[in-house]
């Protein structure tokens, strides 16, 4: 299996606070990594750096051997390029961030349509391309179990349904790596299952994913690899079974013990 993502020596500070300290990890194509750790450990900031919503102070991000970002090489920091590089990654937010004025289907289609409009052949095959995008979006929503909900607006959907629309919206752009930022944290407990189930299905289809989550059982179950972060550093990473059952580091043990107590 080939390495798809390489993250090397990422550092990030906000004002005086160091949020990420020398964070490095890699991810193989088709694999899933779960990132666990308490609030404020830097998990979300790491995802935001990968999606170019934050710029790290130091470090390198490579996807399929292509250097997307190298803080030592200003040529990789050009604003105009960043937009394209972002498309390598998808991001599903904790709070969904669906566009309220569009239906579920329109939410999924919008970005894809705007990108298609930039293609030279768009004017020639406009109808055809739009049909293709619509068919793809419908298929994705069906896959998310939302066949009946496509024409509903976000405020007419439950949180779990909204999050599944958001997943379809991210998938529509076919990112190399799909990132989840605590996808179930904003949901009522009875709605987390339906979202976790679709993520599990994506994992079974070998979608490369990075999942930041507080759902420990899920993190363990879905991932090929677990990363435990604390205070901006990766304390421990490895096979989920190993990390959860035989953590080597004291901090990991303490964190997991706190979770078991509930």
């Amino acid at each position: 299996m080939s390495v798809l993502l390489e993250v090397e020596h990422i550092e990030k500070s906000f004002e005086e606070t160091k949020v990420l300290k020398d964070v490095s990890f890699s991810l193989n194509e088709g694999e899933v990594v779960s990132i666990i750790g308490s609030s404020g450990s830097g998990k979300t900031t790491l995802l935001r750096c990968l999606n170019f919503l934050e710029t790290p102070d130091e470090g390198v991000i490579k996807v399929a051997n292509e250097v997307l970002l190298d803080m030592k090489n200003p040529a990789t920091l050009k604003e105009s390029e960043i937009r394209k590089k972002r498309l390598r990654f998808g991001l599903v937010f904790q709070s969904f961030n669906l566009f309220p004025q569009y239906t579920a289907l329109e939410n999924v289609m919008l970005a894809k349509e705007l990108l298609a409009k930039e293609q030279p052949e768009y004017k020639l095959r406009k109808k055809e391309i739009q049909e293709e995008i619509k068919a793809l979006s419908v298929k994705l929503l069906q896959q998310m179990g939302l066949s009946e909900r496509m024409n509903n607006y976000p405020h007419q959907l439950s949180g779990g349904q909204c999050q599944r629309v958001a997943i379809a919206r991210a998938l529509a752009l076919r990112p190399d790596i799909l990132c989840f930022d605590e996808p179930t944290s904003a949901l009522d407990p009875e709605l987390t299952g339906e979202v976790l189930r679709v993520i599990k299905e994506l994992a079974d289809q070998n979608t490369t994913m990075i999942i930041v989550t507080h759902e420990m059982a899920f993190a363990r179950d879905v991932a090929n690899k677990v990363i435990f972060m604390d205070d901006g550093v990766i304390v421990e990473q490895g096979d989920p079974k190993e990390v959860f059952e035989n953590p080597k580091e004291e901090r990991t043990k303490q964190f997991l013990a706190r979770y078991k107590q509930g």
Partner: peptide, 11 residues
């Protein structure tokens, strides 16, 4: 979040 959602979708 609306702006960020748009950004990660390449808008």
């Amino acid at each position: 979040g609306q702006e960020e959602a748009g950004l990660v979708l390449g808008m």
